[in-house]
């Protein structure tokens, strides 16, 4: 496979995953904006939405103040926002189109249709009460793409690279959502917190579609350290950091084996790094993490996750620059 192809496949799946996560974040923000509230302002809510998506700076430069319609438009449709759903789908499709030969027809068609339908949306004609439907639609299209991928793709380098893109992006997203709101998860909050915090905990869970499954796993009402545990260390929760690494580690091993590295018995740097992160998650416990600082833990994780993406790109010659190393 061409290095350029590997790069495009990796990023294609990252962008699809990102589009879905943005839709989920907006869904939560929109929901909270509807709730009657005192004290805790809506501005803060939109601020954390934008911050989780890494778009705060750009948004403020463009609009100056927080406003539901502006935030939603900016995060859904803005072509000048690289993290908007529009930009994510455009980039995913551009990567896919450049590598159509690596995609099955089902994958390409699901992605191409999603792009055609989404880009036909007129932001000015969209009514606020149609938004929940649009959020669902985006999530469905992402699910359809993943379904088409899982059902049709050959289990070779193409598959492993798309797996890596999806789960690296997902881990990054979950970690960012947590980091933006880590303060509401700190243990002391349980005592000072009231209804507002409960809403916040629910919002965090909702933004990773875990508000219902939580109850099945913990059989109790929302508790901040459990919410953190669920999203970081729980092995059942499909968007937890640990779950993501449960997919990443074998994908890297199988990719190396596919290229015949197993025979040499040597592990490459990205495999070693992923295994190390996996061990942190598998052996960690929330008490220790809280003691040494949740924020610090998350920042370290995000940095590790980024480093892994760079190592993968280097190991498999994604671009010329690293191929020379």
């Amino acid at each position: 496979m061409l290095g350029r192809t590997a790069n495009d496949l990796f990023w294609m799946s990252r962008y699809i995953e990102r589009a879905e996560n943005i839709a989920r974040l907006l869904e939560v923000g929109y929901r909270i904006a509807l709730l009657p509230r005192e004290g805790h302002g809506q501005d803060e809510e939109w601020q954390s939405t934008l911050r989780s998506a890494g778009s705060e700076q750009r948004y403020l430069e463009k609009y100056g103040t927080y406003d539901s319609t502006n935030v939603i438009n900016f995060m859904l449709f803005a072509a000048d926002n690289p993290s908007s759903v529009y930009s994510c789908l455009a980039s995913a499709r551009r990567n896919a189109r450049a590598q159509r030969i690596a995609l099955t027809r089902e994958m390409w068609e699901s992605l191409n249709s999603a792009w055609i339908d989404f880009s036909a949306q007129d932001p000015n004609k969209l009514r606020s009460n149609e938004l929940p439907h649009l959020f669902d639609w985006i999530k469905q299209r992402s699910a359809l793409f993943r379904g088409a991928l899982l059902n049709t793709i050959l289990r070779n380098d193409t598959f492993y690279l798309t797996q890596l893109g999806t789960f690296l992006e997902r881990a990054d997203n979950t970690a960012r959502i947590l980091d933006v709101k880590y303060y509401v998860l700190l243990p002391h909050n349980e005592f000072v917190g009231g209804e507002i915090d409960s809403v916040q905990w629910a919002a965090i869970l909702r933004s990773v579609s875990a508000h219902r499954s939580y109850r099945w796993v913990y059989k109790s009402s929302y508790k901040p350290w459990r919410v953190a545990d669920y999203l970081i260390l729980n092995r059942q929760m499909p968007r937890s950091l640990r779950s993501c690494y449960q997919e990443i580690v074998p994908a890297l091993d199988e990719l190396a084996a596919f290229y015949g590295a197993a025979r040499s018995g040597k592990e490459n740097r990205c495999q070693a790094l992923a295994r190390e992160t996996m061990n942190l998650l598998a052996t960690g416990d929330m008490t220790t993490i809280f003691q040494s600082g949740l924020h610090e833990f998350l920042l370290d994780f995000i940095a590790r996750n980024n480093r892994l993406a760079n190592e993968i790109s280097r190991a498999y010659h994604f671009t010329d620059e690293v191929a020379a190393c």
Binding site: M1, L2, G3, R4, T5, A6, Q99, R100, I101, D157, Y259, Y316, H317, D320, A323
Partner: peptide, 27 residues
């Protein structure tokens, strides 16, 4: 390229080296 099962390359994926045409792959 897809129907034949061969790589689709652009100029940037290719180099001439050792008197051969070579493409830059993941390996």
């Amino acid at each position: 390229a897809d129907q034949m099962g061969v790589d689709l390359v652009e100029g940037q994926d290719l180099v001439v080296s050792d008197g051969e045409l070579q493409m830059k792959t993941t390996q």
